[in-house]
Amino acid sequence: MGVEQKLANMGVVTTTLETAVNWGRTNAMWPMLFGLACCAIEMMAAQSATYDMSRFGMELMRPSPRQSDLMIVAGRVSRKMAPVLRRLYDQMPEPKWVIAMGDCASCGGVFNNYAILQGVDEIVPVDVYVAGCPPRPEALIHGVVTLHEKVRAEKFKDLTKT
């Protein structure tokens, strides 16, 4: 009977601060509605009942950037939309993450021309790229789970570099 057993009987769990902070960040990550084009339909499908995303804490899709942590850029970003996207990204409070969903957000997709931004990582730093045109809802959920794993592995000493 160790100390941990006795504490557990009392309802106390010990952990590290990093684990606790990262657990809080992953389990209630609110995405911002940024469905631009066809990938938005798959994002909506992933949010729906069949491929439920609210089991990952993403029940609330906030349209306001001030209340969200995660920006899922779903769809092609045109050159006219790019400064708007950057402004919304700047309005999100730290900590924030970006998932580039689909081929057009990752690398420009099939549109190799003057009007479409060749990958949204030209203007915002992206954490996870989800490939597909459009990616299936399961692929988007896999990307979300990958992001969760990445956030769980974050250390405090990396966060203090600005």
């Binding site: 050159r79 006219k80 400064p83 690398c107 420009g108 190799n112 021309n113 003057y114 009007a115 479409i116 060749q118």
Partner: peptide
């Protein structure tokens, strides 16, 4: 109206290059 204000060139002319970047 469609391109950013500081864009040079007129995209739908026939002597404007077709693609934008080299595929990776």
């Amino acid at each position: 109206i469609m391109m950013p204000e500081d864009w040079t060139g007129h995209p739908l002319r026939k002597d404007y290059p077709l693609g934008y970047e080299e595929p990776q």
